[in-house]
Amino acid sequence: VAKRKCPDHGLDLSTYCQEDRQLICVLCPVIGAHQGHQLSTLDEA
């Protein structure tokens, strides 16, 4: 199974943004649109 990539940063989608209910990469909460959002690992989601 191919991993999905972040459209903004090109990295694997490895984190779940609880606020926006979507998968994001590790850079999205650091330099992207998900700064300050509640996050979960994929195992927790």
Rank of each mutant, 00 (worst) to 15 (best):
C6T: 01
G36E: 09
A2E: 15
D20Y: 02
S40Y: 08
V1G: 06
R21M: 11
I31G: 12
P29V: 06
C28E: 01
L11T: 05
V30D: 12
A33G: 11
G32C: 02
P29G: 07
L27Y: 08
H37S: 02
A33Y: 07
R21N: 14
E19D: 14
Q38F: 08
R4P: 03
G36C: 05
T41G: 13
V1K: 12
D8P: 01
Q22P: 01
G10N: 15
K5A: 04
V1T: 08
A33M: 10
A2K: 15
H34Y: 02
L27D: 15
Y16S: 05
A2Q: 14
V1A: 06
G36V: 03
A45W: 10
D12I: 11
P29M: 10
P7A: 11
T15K: 15
H37A: 02
G36F: 04
V30P: 03
Q18Y: 15
D20V: 02
R21F: 06
D12W: 05
Q38M: 12
S14K: 13
R21P: 01
C6S: 00
C28M: 00
H9D: 00
S40G: 13
H9A: 00
P7L: 06
I24E: 03
D12M: 09
L23R: 12
T15S: 11
P29R: 09
V30C: 08
E19Y: 07
C28G: 01
L42H: 15
L27W: 04
I24N: 03
E44I: 06
R4A: 08
D12Q: 06
Q38V: 08
L23S: 13
T15D: 12
L11Y: 11
L42C: 13
H34S: 01
I31Y: 08
T15E: 09
L42A: 14
P29E: 11
L27F: 06
I31A: 13
P7I: 07
R4K: 13
L27K: 15
L11W: 04
C6W: 00
C25L: 00
L13H: 03
D12G: 07
T15M: 07
Q18A: 11
V1C: 11
Q35I: 09
Q38R: 12
Q18G: 06
P29K: 12
C6R: 00
A33Q: 11
L39A: 11
Q35G: 05
H34C: 06
K3P: 07
P7Q: 14
I24R: 05
L23D: 15
D43Y: 06
H34D: 02
A2V: 10
Y16F: 08
K3H: 07
H37R: 02
K3W: 04
V26D: 14
V26F: 09
A2W: 05
R21A: 12
D43K: 08
R21S: 15
Q35K: 12
G10L: 06
V30Y: 05
H37T: 02
V1F: 04
H34M: 02
H37C: 09
Y16T: 14
Q35S: 08
P29A: 07
R4W: 05
L13Y: 05
C25T: 02
Q22T: 15
R21C: 13
A2M: 12
I24Y: 04
Q35F: 05
I24P: 03
I24F: 05
K5E: 05
K5W: 03
C6V: 00
C6I: 01
V30W: 05
Q38G: 12
L13M: 10
L13K: 04
C6A: 00
S40K: 10
L39V: 11
L42Y: 13
S40I: 08
P7D: 03
A2D: 15
T41E: 13
D20C: 09
G36M: 04
R4Q: 08
S40M: 07
C6H: 00
Q35Y: 08
L42D: 14
D12E: 12
C25S: 01
Y16W: 10
E44A: 13
Y16N: 05
D8F: 10
C25Q: 02
D20L: 02
C6Y: 00
I31W: 06
P7C: 05
G36T: 04
H37N: 02
L23P: 15
K5H: 04
L13V: 07
H9R: 00
Q18V: 07
A45Q: 14
T41W: 06
C25D: 02
T15H: 10
C6N: 01
Q38E: 13
P7Y: 04
T15R: 09
A2I: 14
P7R: 05
L23A: 14
A33K: 12
D12V: 07
E19I: 08
Q18L: 08
D20Q: 03
T41S: 14
I24H: 03
P7K: 03
L11H: 14
Y16C: 06
Q18M: 12
H34G: 02
L39I: 11
V26I: 07
K3D: 14
G32L: 01
A45E: 07
L11F: 07
L13D: 02
D12R: 04
H34A: 02
C17Y: 01
D8E: 14
C17I: 01
R21H: 14
D8K: 14
Q35D: 05
L39H: 13
S14P: 01
A2T: 15
E19R: 07
V26C: 12
Q35C: 07
P29I: 05
T41L: 07
H9N: 01
L27Q: 15
H34L: 00
I31D: 15
D43H: 09
L27G: 04
C28N: 01
Q22G: 06
Q22A: 11
E44C: 09
Q35N: 07
G36D: 08
D12H: 13
D12C: 03
G10R: 05
G36H: 10
G36L: 04
G36R: 05
V26T: 15
V30T: 15
A45S: 04
L39T: 13
C28V: 00
D20G: 03
R21L: 08
L13W: 05
S14M: 09
T41P: 12
K3S: 09
C17S: 02
L13R: 07
H37Q: 02
H9W: 00
A33P: 09
K3G: 09
R4H: 04
I24M: 10
Q22S: 13
I31T: 15
A33E: 10
A2H: 14
T15A: 07
I31L: 11
Q18D: 13
G10Y: 06
Q18K: 14
S14E: 14
S40E: 11
E44N: 11
E19H: 10
C17A: 02
A2G: 10
S14R: 07
